[in-house]
């Protein structure tokens, strides 16, 4: 008798755990031939709210980690991703792209993580400043993470869009709640497993699956989400997000890039979810000024 394959249950990722959706609802993901590939969680508002709590709880310690350490953790994600290459290639191809395309997408995704790993302890020096104020004060400005970021990941890719949206946000010390592509959700769940085994503390990245049309209003109106990144070009959802965002003066960024391009990356993506903090302290001015030494 032929061996019966064990199918994978695709769950969501909240606070370092893999719960099923609270909603109890699923949608079937079909391949090109119309066969069911998996049942995907239709995350609810409650799942989202739980994820925000997890992200908020993780925020303080993640942002307080030494930047060097965050860089090592992002690099570790790249390592773990590389190690699962065959699984991702299979998931990418089963969702309808060619093996060649899948290989390209996978490689750029790994390289993008390495790219942002490198930025973790460098962007502060590019975007921070010591300010030559006219009074006798020491004055400097540094970027700090905005806080909890809601991300609607691009719908048109399974892995590269997800990685490109998440990496700069966490490189900058933010935590996030991500809604994966509704159309191509498989890699997001497997990517959660990569994150979970890469020294990324639970809650730093939370990944939900489901419908943007159901969740975008909750992402944008939640009072404890500080910024929102919307990847895509659905005008209604962008309008709704930007309107809802006013409830707590949420920062909203709309990205509509081709993430497969080598240059669809940069420190300015990190800076979108950063605040500039300026600190002043008086400088005592006694002695030395007129000395001839």
């Amino acid at each position: 008798m032929a061996r019966l394959n064990i199918l994978k249950t695709y769950k969501i990722y909240i606070g370092g755990q893999f719960p099923r959706t609270e909603s109890g609802r699923y949608y079937p993901l079909l391949d090109k031939a119309g066969n069911t590939l998996a049942n995907i969680c239709l995350s609810s508002r409650k799942d989202f709210r739980n994820a925000v709590v997890a992200a908020r709880n993780a925020q303080g310690s993640w942002s307080a980690k030494p930047a060097f350490n965050r860089g090592q953790i992002l690099y570790r994600i790249a390592e773990m991703l590389e190690g699962r290459k065959s699984q991702f290639l299979e998931e990418l191809t089963v969702q309808g792209i060619t093996l060649k395309q899948a290989q390209a997408e996978f490689e750029i995704s790994v390289d993008r993580l390495v790219y942002y790993a490198g930025w973790c302890d460098k962007y502060q020096q590019i975007y921070g400043s010591v300010n030559p104020v006219a009074t006798s004060h020491f004055n400097f400005s540094v970027p700090e993470p905005t806080g909890v970021v809601g991300i609607i990941a691009p719908n048109n890719s399974s892995l590269i869009g997800l990685v490109s949206a998440i990496a700069p946000v966490i490189a900058g010390g933010n935590t996030c709640v991500v809604l994966a592509s509704e159309k191509f959700p498989l890699c997001s769940v497997t990517f959660s497993e990569v994150l979970n085994s890469s020294d990324v503390p639970g809650g730093v990245v939370n990944i939900l699956t489901g419908k943007s049309s159901e969740l975008v209003s909750h992402f944008s109106s939640h009072m404890d989400v500080n910024a929102m990144i919307y990847c895509g070009n659905n005008k209604e959802e962008i309008l709704l997000s930007e309107q809802n965002a006013t409830i707590n003066v949420k920062r909203v960024f709309v990205y509509n890039q081709n993430w497969m391009q080598e240059n669809a990356q940069g420190a300015h993506y990190i800076m979108d979810a950063q605040e500039i903090k300026t600190t002043w302290h008086p400088i005592e001015n006694i002695g030395g000024g007129g000395a001839k030494y």
């Binding site: 300010n131 030559p132 009074t135 004060h137 400005s141 300026t278």
Partner: peptide
């Protein structure tokens, strides 16, 4: 304290 060179916001 305020100064033109010092970011505020």
């Amino acid at each position: 304290k305020f100064d033109p060179t010092s970011p505020f916001g």
